[in-house]
Design a protein around this nucleic acid. Structure first.
Length: 837
RNA sequence: GCGGGUGUGGCGGAAUGGUAGACGCCGGGGACUUAAAAUCCCCUGAGCUUUGCUCGUGCGGGUUCGAGUCCCGCCACCCGCACCA
């Protein structure tokens, strides 16, 4: 083997082509091997791969390659979450077609991914914007409709009157459209909904089975679903109506001193007076940002109506209150100021009674409040037949009483809302329905699928181009044959990403997927992606999977057996004040010295800012293409795995990637020292090698890539120092295999030079000799009173008595004991001896 | 406000209740070289009266022969949710 340098610019492409030609990473559904489905969240084709993708896909790739080496049939696919707003924005700004823009981006990004040498089955590539994907989605949507899981209802949306479009909440900034700057209006539109609330209970319970999901994500979903147990009952109002309220604290019912309703509650809406109307308008104006809610004053309006307390008989005033939400519970609450902070503030402001009904003990039934509500545990007081009960006992008692009277019932209320999937946009999956004046809303026949998007659309006029597209929009009614129009709304792109993992596993032309084939691959063994999808995507995908399961299309209930959320790639920022404002500079405009950073252009010093998430506005981004050009794919991959634990943020640094680059070449030099004819055994090295193989395997399976990397560094150092022997040659060969999942190009190149047949990507993971995992000598720590005084070497498994004798023989130990009587000696076999005096 | 997480050298970080700081980066010294790059070797938590000793894992207590790790109470930072009755 010659001492040539490893040249990634030649080797990377060569091996990528070799894998392609051999179809090394093609997944065979009919294989007898155990299946392993490794999946990373597919990207939106924004134009360029960013470094966060590189980290995400490198982790998945190491796992996929390792699984393959350990005898699994691996499915590791890639595709494109290709519908979405940026394509329409590009269309409006640059006059390009969203489809053309998207497909160009896909082509470019695919080339970028290929340069990184990922072990992907590209034969299963899919893009959600193509009819052969979204057509099947339309079919699934119709299936769900037939099962009663899809419905239409009037719903309030954020409407941008200039762009003539619906805006998502996050697109409304300070009450104005993010693009147009126009004042956003609330509009009622008839929209499509999916009945995710039907699955609230099982989505919540299912979380309990997802042991290999981060607790954090499970908790976030749990809070999002938001189950609460309570009582719903009705007040009789002085105007003769009944007012249902919901409470989770029915035990405090005797502490109710007023009733509060939401501004858009029917009772409020029914008020005629100008003052009432003005107050309702005021409530609507209130901001919805976190900061505004934090400081918002509790405001109320006395309707003049009263509500009869079901037990006390008192007439409670009914207020419209700005803190009551219409879309939770019944939009009306019984207000218990003594034991709810919001009610307390409200009652204080409007001078309403604040009775105590929970106290630390029966003796303290009239203890005054210390300026805030007491929401905690205690004993019920001033509450007639509930007096003396605990909070929990009282809850049960009052619910029973109300139920006996037929005035209400114990009820579970969920925070989770049904999923509104209508989007008034062009670049999405057309919703397969037809509106007929005579027949109403009619599902499109499955034979008419896919309903494809028209290509000839213009984006220069505001609004949804589908709305204006006469030849596309007007169709015959499938039922009566009369004049009808297509639904012009398209589906939320989260629908597209709610089943792509099924289509990856099975892609027949005539249906969304094959049930038997899905059963072979699903659930995904390991899913990897960003924490930002903890709720929406991951909840929707779980829902969609359960919905398909319920209607009998698949057998699996939970799509992702294990979830891993990786940290972000971060970078320090460079900036300086110029003409009164802060100007940021990109890393490649900077020359970085040990303590300072200089601008290449003029040599001026710039300030080194905090290490934060890469963002365009701070210009602290690095471009994957550039760094692959400079260092090669393997060094970049290695950096992505080194140092930081994968769930934490990874600070990108020039010094760090250069270190990785050096290591690639250091390995290459070591591989060059392979001597197949070397003889002689080096038992210590054999041990180290086998221990490393076992440890690296364990680390990869636990996704502890940074630890695996450290072990490989260690073994590399040991092998470098070892004298030539058959053991050393074996160690070098093993090292090639150990780094193969992480640095596949270098590994293939070395594998070939070692004279091995075939690809290292096809090679089995090195076998471990269990007898070599244990040392025959161990280092024993010797402590006196828990402080280290000496270390000694003992044979593995030495007896407690021997170890104690050896420890006591130590000069350092004797000096430390200094003649004191030994009271006790603690011996941990093969680890330490602690002498207590 | 509620919920969760994290605090270890100059930096990223290791460490089944058992030798704190593995491994990498930065830095320092040396070798090779006419020189540089590359490479290799050594040092690198702080302090001290340096065969060795003391201190040291955000702070204060506790349990234990022994605590970064377990328990109690704080502090700081980060993330998520948020007027959810």
């Amino acid at each position: 083997m010659s001492e040539t340098r490893f040249d990634p610019s030649a080797a990377d492409g060569r091996w990528q082509r070799a894998w392609d030609e051999a179809q090394t990473f093609r997944a065979d559904s009919n294989s007898d091997k155990p299946k392993s489905y490794v999946l990373e969240m597919f990207p939106y084709p924004s134009g360029r791969i960013h470094i966060g993708h590189v980290r995400n896909y490198t982790m998945g790739d190491v796992l996929a390659r390792y699984k393959k080496a350990t005898g699994h049939e691996v499915l590791h696919p890639m595709g494109w979450d290709a519908f979405g707003m940026p394509a329409e924005n590009a269309a409006m700004e640059k006059g390009v077609h969203p489809g053309g823009w998207t497909r160009d981006n896909i082509e470019h990004m695919k080339a970028q991914l290929k340069r990184l040498g990922f072990a992907l089955d590209w034969s299963r590539e899919l893009a959600t914007c193509e009819p052969d994907y979204y057509g099947h989605e339309q079919a699934l949507f119709l299936d769900l409709y037939e099962a009663g899981l899809v419905y239409r209802k009037e719903s309030e949306v954020n409407w941008d009157p200039v762009d003539m479009t619906v805006l998502a909440n996050e697109q409304v900034i300070d009450g104005k459209g993010w693009r147009s700057g126009a004042e956003v209006e609330k509009r009622k539109l008839s929209q499509w909904f999916l009945k995710i609330t039907d699955f609230a209970e099982e989505l919540l319970e299912g979380l309990g089975t997802l042991e290999n999901w981060p607790d954090k994500v499970r908790l976030m979903q749990e809070n999002w679903i938001g189950k609460s147990r309570g009582l719903e009952f009705s007040f009789d109002l002085s105007n003769g109506e009944k007012l249902p309220v919901y409470t989770t604290r029915p035990d405090t019912i005797f502490g109710a001193s007023f009733v509060a309703i939401a501004a858009d509650h029917p009772v409020a809406q029914g008020l005629e007076s100008d003052a009432a109307r003005d107050f309702i308008a005021l409530c609507k104006k209130g901001g919805t940002t976190a900061a505004e809610l934090e400081t918002a004053e509790k405001l109320g309006f006395d309707t003049g109506i009263t509500a009869k307390h079901p037990f006390a008989g008192a007439d409670l005033p009914v207020y419209i209150a700005n803190f009551v939400l219409m879309d939770y519970g019944t939009g009306a609450v019984m207000a218990v100021p003594g034991h709810d902070q919001r009610d307390f503030e409200f009652a204080t402001k409007y001078d309403l009674p604040i009775p105590r009904v929970v106290a630390p003990s029966l003796d303290e039934a009239d203890k005054p409040f210390a300026g805030e509500a007491e929401a905690g545990e205690g004993v019920i007081v001033n509450s007639d037949f509930l007096d003396g009960m605990s909070v929990e006992e009282a809850k049960r008692a009052i619910i029973r009483r109300i139920e006996e009277q037929g005035a209400g019932e114990g009820k579970t209320v969920w925070r989770l809302r049904d999923w509104g999937v209508s989007r008034q946009r062009y670049w999405g999956t057309p919703i397969p329905f037809i509106h007929c004046d005579a027949c109403g809303v009619v599902p499109a026949p499955k034979s008419s699928l896919p309903i494809t998007l028209p290509e000839d659309v213009d984006f220069q006029t505001p609004g949804n181009p589908l709305e204006r597209h006469e030849s596309w929009k007007h169709v015959e009614c499938p039922e009566c044959g009369g004049k009808a129009t297509r639904e012009t709304d398209t589906l939320d792109t989260f629908v597209d990403s709610s089943w792509y993992f099924l289509r990856f596993a099975s892609q027949p032309a005539d249906k969304p997927f094959d049930r038997e084939e899905i059963a072979k691959w699903l659930p995904v063994e390991q899913y990897i992606g960003g924490i930002e999808h903890a709720i929406l995507h991951l909840l929707y995908a779980r829902f969609w999977t359960r919905a398909l399961n319920r209607i009998g299309l698949i057998d699996v209930k939970e799509p992702f057996a294990s979830l891993f959320t990786q940290g972000m790639v971060t970078h320090e920022t460079y900036s300086r004040r110029e003409g009164g404002k802060t100007v940021y500079y990109a890393p490649d405009e900077i020359s970085r010295e040990a303590e300072r950073a200089l601008l290449k252009d003029d040599g001026g010093e710039v300030e080194i800012g905090r290490v934060i998430k890469m963002s365009k506005s701070k210009k602290n981004v690095v471009d994957p293409d550039t760094i692959i050009d400079t260092y090669g794919a393997d060094a970049v991959r290695w950096f992505m795995l080194s140092d930081s634990p994968p769930e934490r943020d990874l600070p990108w640094s020039e010094a760090g990637i250069e270190g990785c680059h050096r290591f690639v070449h250091r390995l290459w030099r070591l591989f060059g020292q392979f001597d197949g004819s070397a003889s002689g055994e080096d038992k210590a090295l054999d041990r180290k090698t086998h221990q490393t193989v076992a440890a690296v395997a364990e680390d990869i399976e636990a996704l502890g890539f940074n630890k695996a990397v450290a072990r490989i560094y260690e073994l590399t150092g040991t092998v470098e120092k070892a004298a030539p022997s058959a053991s050393r040659s074996a160690a070098i060969r093993t090292l090639v295999q150990l780094v193969a999942p992480m640095m596949p190009h270098l590994a293939e190149e070395a594998w070939a030079k070692l004279g091995e047949q075939g690809l290292v990507a096809d090679a089995a993971w090195p076998e471990i000799d269990p007898t070599l995992l244990v040392e025959d000598e161990v280092t024993i720590a010797v402590q006196h009173m828990g402080k280290l005084r000496d270390t000694l070497t003992a044979p593995k498994g030495a007896s407690k008595d021997d170890l104690e004798a050896m420890a006591l023989a130590s000069e350092n130990v004797q000096r430390s004991i200094d003649g004191a009587a030994v009271r006790k000696v603690i011996v941990v076999p093969d680890r330490l001896v602690n002498i207590v005096t």
